[in-house]
């Protein structure tokens, strides 16, 4: 499933990377600890987090993640948004929290993508 398909279903806001929404999402990883993401997230996954500072872009870029979803209505700092554009990272937002978003994602793409990615 592409990022665009997911956005259509779940109505997220696009903060950056609007031209990259055709990227496939291979799975989902939810965490607010950067080293946890560095250690355990896998290439092509969508990262769900409440962190909004610029360093999330470095993490997503270094790990080749598909996109970042900022939850709880969080807005990225301006330098975060600029870094996302510069590094070609898709940056998304949702007013709902991690639990709701992960539940909806699970319903939408299931666990198959996650174990096979």
């Amino acid at each position: 499933m592409t990022i665009e398909n997911i956005i259509k279903e779940l109505g997220w806001e696009v903060f950056a990377g609007a031209s990259l929404l055709q990227k496939p999402v291979k799975g989902v990883y939810a965490s607010d600890l950067l080293s946890d993401v560095m250690g355990r997230a896998r290439e092509g996954e969508l990262w769900v987090t409440m962190q909004t500072h610029k360093n999330i872009i470095a993490v997503a870029s270094l790990k080749d993640l598909a996109a970042i979803l900022i939850v709880n209505g969080g807005r990225p700092d301006e330098d975060t948004r600029q870094a996302a554009d510069a590094e070609n990272i898709v940056l998304l937002g949702s007013n709902a929290g991690t639990y709701i978003n992960c539940g909806l994602l699970y319903k939408l793409i299931g666990a198959d993508a996650m174990v096979s990615s």
Partner: peptide, 14 residues
């Protein structure tokens, strides 16, 4: 900020 999880050095090792 999400740093300081205590996983840095073990991530390096892995």
């Amino acid at each position: 900020m999400g740093f300081g999880a205590g996983m840095g050095l073990s991530n390096i090792k892995k």
